[in-house]
Nucleic acid binder design. Sequence first.
DNA 1: TTGTACGCGTTATCAT
DNA 2: ATGATAACGCGTACAA
Lengths: 323, 323
Amino acid sequence: MEKVTIATVAERAGVSRQTVSNVINTPEVVRAETRERVREAITSLGYRVNQAARQMRTGRSRLIAVRIEPGSDGINGSVLDRFLHGLTDAATLAGYRVMLYTAADDDHEIATYDDLLTAHDLDGFVLTSTHHGDPRTSWLAARDVPFVTFGRPWGAPDTHSWVDVDNAAGTAAATRHLIEAGHRRIGFLGWPAGSGVGDSRRTGWESTMTDAGLTLSAVAAVDGVDAGADAAARFDSAITAVVCASDSLALGALRARPDCAVIGFDDTAVAAAIGLTSVSQPLTEAAARCMDMLTELLDGRAPATPTQLLLPPSLVVRPPRRR
Amino acid sequence: MEKVTIATVAERAGVSRQTVSNVINTPEVVRAETRERVREAITSLGYRVNQAARQMRTGRSRLIAVRIEPGSDGINGSVLDRFLHGLTDAATLAGYRVMLYTAADDDHEIATYDDLLTAHDLDGFVLTSTHHGDPRTSWLAARDVPFVTFGRPWGAPDTHSWVDVDNAAGTAAATRHLIEAGHRRIGFLGWPAGSGVGDSRRTGWESTMTDAGLTLSAVAAVDGVDAGADAAARFDSAITAVVCASDSLALGALRARPDCAVIGFDDTAVAAAIGLTSVSQPLTEAAARCMDMLTELLDGRAPATPTQLLLPPSLVVRPPRRR
DNA sequence: TTGTACGCGTTATCAT
DNA sequence: ATGATAACGCGTACAA
């Protein structure tokens, strides 16, 4: 099992190393016949480019990086994991590999960018969990590092490409579903105001209710089953259904108000397991579109203005059953 | 922001490039005074090694690879995700980065090894989901590629280092807990025989029951809530408690036998959410130990014989509540 | 502590 | 239009 380099291939095919390189990178400049001969040599020898050597010359690594949440557990943590799965698949298809990193906060994350860029020549980043006052995007933009975010730039101008899920459309669909089922007193159990995602989810419910001429009644809680149950207990007793900002909250609502119809958000494993109707984010699709946008940037064929894409979620309706 | 290479540092410190390299890699061969001067130059210039250049010379990338399950979703999928989180942290601490890949089956995975090794000079692998007749370990071993498995080499000799969780101890603890609570008719709801993990989990229950002189009653189902419910319905009606091989099955058992005490396995988010007592795997610990073993191999300071480590799981007891 | 060759692919230049 | 030659990128192994 000798080491196969571009020189081995060149010798076998009876051409120069340069020609082999051309066949790999710019095949159109090589005569068809030569090209074929070289390609045969490549496959018969099982040649593969040495990424380190290529990278040293080109400064590009064909590597992208994504953060993995440190201790992410709990019900909703799985959402980003599912996104990560999709991204790995999409990256592989596009000829990139995914490198993971963890970061305790935005500053650590930026320090990690610096390290990954200088030490590993990372080609690009996919950012998740965007939030108000996010310093990461401006840091990357200032250095002309290609990146895409999964999540809108909350409270900042759309100066980069992003993909997001239309949270408001999700809760709107949930609310409509309940209205069609005959419910009139539909509460909303959400997070404290201030988070972009949470506020959007509330908006979808609120506008749908208002359009239908129905009365609003909302309570808020930090995410979690217990907090959700406590909050749900504060709804006025006329409520017959609840739209929730997460499956965790939905679980709490179910416990506090077993008489109510409840709809969750994220369609987590918990929802599937207990037969909870929930809004499902198209995470695989989102990951694929992020990768599309990123490869456009990396290949220099990105449109002049950044692209924004808002994907519609879907409502996964599960028949109520005795719990 | 000029590009800072080892030459820049050498010039600033008034030494040769080689000395800078020595300070970085074998500081003990450099006189203390010189070492300090070089270190100052490194920090003041913000120098970082170019991994590609280093890699080209050493053939090592300081990269390890782990598979991420393709569409892994559902209740139990999160287990490997949690392991992955821990591994990323541990790898970072050890100065390695984690590269992800997906693979549809063992053959694809082996093809990916080949690619990662030749193209990216991957230093090592952490394998998960070991199983009977696993072809991956022998492929890697035949090529002297450093690797560690999270999971025993089921049905094969212990020729490599591995970390695993003592599944039998987990179900044994669950069973003892139920016995202490006064239960005598304790059933086991597991997977079909043949999977190493599933068989271990059954063994822990079985031996504990036998030691206590209690009667055995077990049913099996493929993993899943519905299948678990169907299977649990087949228990004889005298059963008052059920030990399950997974939280999914436990959920099924709860549905089919709401009168029974049920204990699950894996302590997933679902268990936490619905207050299900479950056996918890020390996944962060397992990941850290895997990384320890792998770095030993990579640094050439591994013991002559491979290391095996069986970690004890813990029982997370949750008070029963009305469901 | 230093000089120098080396790893491997790509870019630039030159020859046909 | 094709192909060959040479230089280059950056850190490290080895000998001096």
